[in-house]
Amino acid sequence: MAKTIAQRELRNENAKVIDAVAAGETFVITRNGEPVAELRPARAGRRVFISRDEVAALAATSVRIDRHRFRADLDQVIDQGL
Rank of each mutant, 00 (worst) to 15 (best):
E13V: 14
Q7K: 14
I5C: 13
R43A: 11
T26E: 12
A20W: 00
F27H: 11
A15C: 14
G33Y: 04
V28E: 03
L10D: 01
E25D: 01
V36Y: 15
E34S: 13
I18K: 08
E38F: 05
I50N: 15
T4P: 13
E25C: 00
F49L: 11
T4W: 10
P35Q: 13
V21W: 10
R11Q: 08
R46V: 14
G45H: 02
A44T: 15
R40W: 01
T30Y: 01
E9K: 11
R8K: 13
R46S: 10
A22S: 13
G24N: 11
A37C: 05
I5G: 08
D19L: 12
E38R: 03
L10Q: 13
R43K: 13
A6I: 14
A37Y: 15
R47L: 11
N12M: 09
A23K: 14
L10E: 08
R47Y: 11
E34W: 15
R11V: 15
V36N: 07
R43W: 09
A20G: 14
R8M: 10
E25M: 01
P35Y: 09
V21H: 15
E34G: 06
A23N: 05
G45E: 12
R46W: 10
P35K: 13
R47N: 13
G33K: 04
A37I: 00
V28H: 04
F49Y: 06
T26Y: 08
A44K: 15
I29K: 05
V48A: 08
V17R: 00
T26A: 04
N14S: 01
R11H: 09
L10F: 13
E34K: 07
A20Y: 04
K16I: 07
I29Q: 03
V28L: 05
A44H: 06
F27L: 03
I5F: 10
G33V: 10
R8G: 12
I5D: 00
I5Y: 02
P41S: 04
A22C: 09
R11D: 11
N32V: 09
V36M: 08
T26I: 07
G24M: 03
G45P: 07
A44Y: 10
N12T: 01
Q7I: 06
G24H: 12
N32H: 02
T30V: 06
R40Q: 08
A37F: 11
E9D: 09
